[in-house]
Write a protein that binds this DNA or RNA. Structure first.
Lengths: 211, 211
DNA sequence: TCCGGCATGTAAGGTGTTACATGATTGC
DNA sequence: GCAATCATGTAACACCTTACATGCCGGA
């Protein structure tokens, strides 16, 4: 006898795009078009390409019971999309997932998406653990690349070596970022103040510079 | 009346993995298994995952007439894969393709693969043009990210801002790499010496450090 | 004799990609 | 009345992912 709302598919695993949609809908209910605009106009565009991708993904999330349609606030005519309880749970579980070995090489974009969506619902310990594990994995990867360059560098043609150097530079940048971000969160963890009160301007600028 | 060898498909566009396979087979004819090993044991592994990906891709390249089976040198029993003339042409055309707008955001891995395979068959002018255009696109992207951070940075939650900072750090690293690589190639362009003669050790190390 | 490495795949499934289709509003 | 933007999709297609299947060979 079915009693749960729209009969959620029990073990549906959203794709990276799916999680991006869940994260955006957690901020506030939105229409598919508004979400499209976000992808089109912000750096989140990395995670999608065109309406032909977004709408089917939203449909899948609805079929999985993670998203529902709700009437818009005032008029009620327009249909908005919002997270269900199951969708919220699914998102939170994803945000707390540990950094798996190999994620850093194959799914770095998903890791960054995850970090970007770790808001106040996730405590600082989780954030710090994420960054610490991320740093470990990045460091290990960087070591592998350095080892390869050391042992096979002279067999490679110039361009191959340079391309490898690009990879090393990239992973190095990520590693430095992870360590900086760790320190920033560790420091702000003591005095939990957000970016919405009076004396925020300077701190915000300071954080901004600390990219 | 068909007269061309295995009746090449005229306008087949290989995927990134397909081009990776073409590039590896240009170095020397190899078996599928040897190629698998390369993906498994070198940083090229970024471009593939498992035998279930590689073998079908090789099959497609054969069907497109870009790759054929040839008997192995000595014994003749084992079958090796090698580029056809069409495959070689296809690879060269790809290597000389200009850097398209948007490639830098969506297909950076393919761009790096391309650069890595630009060996002596491609002249230095092509290499330099590639790096120059790559630098331009990266710079433009970086500007877009900075603009976004400047205009919307304070609306973002801390983690979102940090994640954006990761993207900025990454693109910055790529841009610096592109400029360094440009200078390296420009300098060596005058005195074309490769890494296989006597006094190579130091230069090789120097280049290696210049990642 | 059996196990691990060599060597080459197939099958099911979901998903991204691209291109196209459609209707409702809103402003001029 | 018409164009642009809003808003939501569908369809065809190839591809990647994962897991599984198979046969051979050499060494313990």
């Amino acid at each position: 006898m079915p009693n749960d709302p729209p009969r959620a598919a029990p073990d549906y695993e959203p794709t990276t795009l799916g999680f991006a949609l869940l994260g955006l809908l957690r901020d506030r209910p939105q229409t598919g078009y508004e979400i499209r605009r976000i992808f089109a106009e912000t750096p989140m565009g990395t995670y999608s390409s065109s309406p032909g991708t977004i709408y089917p993904a939203l449909k899948r999330l609805q079929e999985a019971g993670l998203v529902t349609r709700v009437p818009k606030k005032a008029d009620g005519t327009r249909q908005n999309l919002a997270l269900t309880q199951a969708g919220h749970t699914c998102l939170l579980a994803w945000l707390q997932r540990p950094v798996a070995a190999g994620d850093v090489e194959k799914h770095y974009d998903e890791l960054m998406l995850r970090f970007a969506f770790m808001n106040d619902e996730v405590n600082d310990a989780t954030r710090l653990r994420f960054l610490r594990d991320l740093g470990k994995e990045l460091k290990a990867w960087l070591n592998r690349l350095h080892d390869y360059l050391k042992s096979h560098g002279c067999e490679l043609p110039l361009n191959g070596r340079l391309a490898l150097g690009n990879g090393i530079a990239e992973v190095t940048a990520r590693l430095h970022w992870a360590r900086r971000a760790y320190e920033i969160i560790r420091k702000t963890s003591r005095r939990p103040a957000d970016c919405s009160n009076a004396s925020t301007r300077e701190r915000c600028r300071k954080r901004t510079d600390a990219t």
